[in-house]
């Protein structure tokens, strides 16, 4: 279903003296959950607001299904802004019906969709209450319903998991998986990297307004290289120092921790280790997303963003 691919390319945005985005680009395919991670101020929200047309880029373009995002396409996007926003004094059901109608649903369809989402998110009994009377967790659920009530073809969610209790996190995860399963490209930003790692098909890391890594979790962690822990009791110190593509991270008695450069052969390391005598332990660690994130973010740094 190529017609439902979101493609972002070459986005530049500058606010006064501050360059917020430099050449930001990535694609999200239909049915794909795309995790957008980065430090605060890295450019996630700016990128999402540009996708929604709330902000105009200085350069670059956003396409959906190969065509620029027009106003017509925009009404088909489900959006959850970083700063949550609903009318505090409006009743939950009225609010959702209103938003659904503003997105082009007929009054009847809007009511049906509202009913369905209130049920799905466990908000049925609060339908007649003012939004401001709900707990923060429930307000979050209403916010999610607001993003979904018009059956969008694309979901753009800014920090959908922030402030949710564990039960709500599960509900949110399930809903996002379901939406992706019906062919919707889903982009969401989050600081909860373990969650992103578990949930997302692909991940984009942004730092200092630049995309520093885009790919599946496997691709990213593989390309970032792996760590090997070798236990070789009879090995001489520095036994691994001259192996190609290998950096010694730590040596503590019989235990040696090595970092493999991307593409380096771990079997060569094992041979070298066996050559020293018995090998009682040989473990390969894939770096977690957290470690990967730390590595790329500190490497690329947030600094020097001023034009």
């Amino acid at each position: 279903m190529p017609e439902h691919t979101l493609a972002i390319s070459g986005l530049h945005k500058r606010f006064g003296q501050v360059v917020a985005l430099r050449d930001v680009g990535f694609t999200v395919r239909p049915g794909e959950l795309f995790g957008f991670v980065g430090s605060n101020g890295a450019g996630k929200t700016t990128t999402m607001r540009i996708v929604l047309g709330v902000l105009n880029p200085d350069a670059g373009e956003v396409t959906f299904g190969g065509a620029p995002i027009t106003r017509q396409v925009r009404t088909r996007i489900g959006y959850m802004p970083e700063e949550r926003g609903l009318y505090p004094k409006m009743k939950v059901a009225d609010h959702l019906v209103y938003l659904a109608e503003l997105h082009g649903l007929s009054s009847v369809d809007a009511r049906a969709a509202t009913q369905r989402w209130l049920g799905r998110l466990g908000l049925d009994h609060r339908r007649g209450d003012e939004v401001q009377k709900l707990s923060l967790g429930n307000q979050q659920r209403v916010q999610l319903a607001a993003a979904l009530v018009h059956e969008p073809d694309l979901l753009v969610l800014d920090e959908p998991f922030s402030g949710l209790d564990p039960v709500a996190v599960d509900v949110m995860s399930d809903v996002l998986r379901e939406e992706a399963a019906r062919g919707v490209p889903v982009v969401f930003s989050s600081h909860q990297l373990d969650l992103v790692e578990r949930l997302c098909d692909r991940i984009g890391i942004i730092a200092g307004g630049r995309m520093v890594a885009v790919g599946s979790v496997e691709e990213l962690t593989a390309s970032a290289g792996a760590e090997l822990e070798v236990v070789a009791p009879q090995a001489e110190p520095d036994w691994a120092a001259n192996l190609p593509g290998v950096t010694v991270v730590a040596e503590e008695g019989p235990r040696t921790v090595l970092r493999l450069a991307p593409g380096a052969d771990d079997q060569a390391v094992l041979h070298a280790a066996l050559a020293t005598g018995p090998v009682t332990g040989f473990t390969r660690h894939r770096p977690s997303l957290v470690e990967l994130f730390r590595a790329v973010v500190t490497e690329d740094g947030g600094g020097s963003r001023h034009a």
Binding site: R49, L52, G53, V54, R71, R74, T75, I77, Y79, P81, E83, R84, G85, L86, Y87, P88, L99, L102, H103, A146
Partner: peptide, 17 residues
């Protein structure tokens, strides 16, 4: 200001002009 303060304006402006 209510729409600005509650940020609902961002959702609204994503669909209406």
């Amino acid at each position: 200001v209510e729409e600005k303060a509650s940020r609902v304006v961002e959702i609204l402006l994503a669909t209406v002009q």
